[in-house]
Design a binder for these strands. Structure first.
Lengths: 214, 214
DNA sequence: GTAGAATTGTGAATAACATCACTAACATCA
DNA sequence: TGATGTTAGTGATGTTATTCACAATTCTAC
C-alpha cells in the first residue's frame, strides 16, 4: 500500500512521544493522549497507524511498549544505523556530538573532509578521514547513511561521491536540491528562518489590521 | 487571501534559486528554468507566484532582479533580522557561525546560556549572555527571532521565556512540539534521520521483492 | 452478567494541494 | 507587418491528505 508522506513524518513523532510515555512509566495511551501532545487530531493518529496494522485495543488504547516496538520496526530504528558525516566544519562537528542521534540508534562512526589540517584528527572521539577514502571506509565500517554538511557549492559533488560509495540514504544540510538515486532528506535551516520571517511579518500585519482583507 | 503552507516554503526556495541566477549574471528566467532547478513543475512555480501578484512578462519570463526583490519583500528578508540563540552548546555555536544565515539577512547578535562557565565569553565574536538577561537584551538589541538550541527538557521553558521577552518568532531545534502564541518553525534533525531510515528500509525491500504487494 | 463508558478502526465526506490545459501577451524574424 | 514561437496567468480538473461519524470491541462497576 502507498503510505502518505506526511504519515511517514508523523511516525517519527509518535515514536518520540511514546518513548517519553514509556520513560514516564505509562503503560497505555489513547489516540487522544498522543494527539494532544503533538497538537493534531486523534483521528489522524488512528488513521496513520491503521496503514500498518491494528495495534490498539478498543476501549483501552495502545500498549505503549508494544506500539513503540511496532513503530521502531516500521521506521527501521529497531537496529543501529552507522552514519558518516561529510564536512568537519562547525555544523558537522556539532552533529557528531548531537545527543538526539545517538539516543535514537544513529551512530556517527566517521567524519570526512578535504582539509589536510583536519584529516587524522578526532572530533568528539570520531576520526576525520580524507574524503578520498570515502568508498573504502564506507565499506569497512558498514556505513549506510551519509550526512552532507559541506558548503552549498560542494554538496552535489559530495552527494555523487556518497552514492558511488554505496551509501543507502542521505541527510542533506546544504541548501540545494540534490540529484541522486538514493533517498535524500533535506534539513533546510535557512529555509526555516525565511519561513518564520514570513510568518512574523504576516502576523504583525494581521495584528495591525483587524479589518483585514488579504 | 489564504496562502497554502507549501507555497510559503517554496518561496524561500525560489528566493535562493533566483539569487544564484543573479550571481551568474542571468537577467531573465522562465518558470520552467526555476522548476527544473528545484525539481518541481513549472505550473507550480507560476501558481505560487500568482498568489502574490503578476511578476512575469508573457513570452519572456521573469526579470530576475525584480522578482528577487518582490519575493524578498514577501518573505520579509528585505530587511535585516536580529537573531538570538538560546543554548551555547555545540549546535548553538555552530549556528552562530553558519554562513547561510548571515548571507540571507539573519544576523545572530546574542547567545544565551545558563552555564556560568560560558557566560561572558564569546563564540565566533558573539557574546554569551546569562539567560536571566534575556528580556533586557532582547529589547536593547532589538531581537525579533529566537532560536532554541537547548536540550529537549528545557525547550518549553525557554520558549516561554522567549515569548515573554517579546520575541516575534521562534526557530526550534529541540525535538518537542512547543506550546506558544508566537509562530514557531521546527527543525527536527532526529526526525529527518528517522524518515531517511524508513525510506532506506522501504527502498531495499522493494528492490528485493519486485513482485511486491505492499 | 448486563449497562454504560471509553476507545479503536475505517468508509465516506471534506479540504487542501498540485497539475492540466487553455488564453492572452509579448518577442522575433522573415 | 504578419506569422510563428514562447511564456505567464488562471479556471477547471485531478490527486492527496485530513477529518468526520459511526459501528465494533473491550473494560468497569455494580
Amino acid at each position: 500500500m502507498k503510505i502518505p508522506r506526511p504519515t511517514v513524518k508523523r511516525l517519527g513523532l509518535y515514536y518520540r512521544c511514546l518513548s517519553n510515555y514509556r520513560e514516564d512509566g505509562v503503560d497505555f495511551v489513547s489516540s487522544q493522549d498522543i494527539a494532544e501532545k503533538l497538537n493534531i487530531k486523534p483521528s489522524q493518529v488512528r488513521k496513520d497507524l491503521s496503514y500498518f496494522g491494528e495495534f490498539g485495543k478498543r476501549g483501552l488504547g495502545y500498549d505503549v511498549k508494544k506500539l513503540l516496538n511496532e513503530i521502531a520496526h516500521i521506521i527501521g530504528v529497531n537496529k543501529e544505523w552507522n552514519v558518516a558525516i561529510v564536512g568537519a566544519g562547525n555544523l558537522g562537528s556539532a552533529l557528531t556530538s548531537y545527543p538526539g542521534l545517538s539516543k535514537h540508534k544513529f551512530r556517527v562512526v566517521a567524519l570526512f573532509d578535504n582539509n589536510q589540517q583536519k584529516i587524522g584528527k578526532k572530533v568528539s572521539g570520531i576520526t576525520v578521514y580524507d574524503i578520498s577514502d570515502l568508498e573504502r571506509t564506507v565499506n569497512e565500517l558498514k556505513i549506510e547513511i551519509g550526512v552532507i554538511a559541506v558548503p552549498e557549492f560542494a554538496a552535489q559533488h559530495v552527494a555523487e561521491l556518497l552514492e558511488k560509495s554505496g551509501i543507502k540514504g542521505i541527510v542533506n544540510f546544504a541548501p540545494v536540491r540534490l540529484r541522486t538515486n538514493v533517498p535524500v532528506e533535506d534539513v533546510d535551516i535557512t529555509l526555516s528562518f525565511e519561513t518564520i520571517a514570513y510568518n512574523v511579518v504576516k502576523k504583525s500585519s494581521l495584528d495591525l489590521l483587524d479589518t483585514s482583507n488579504d
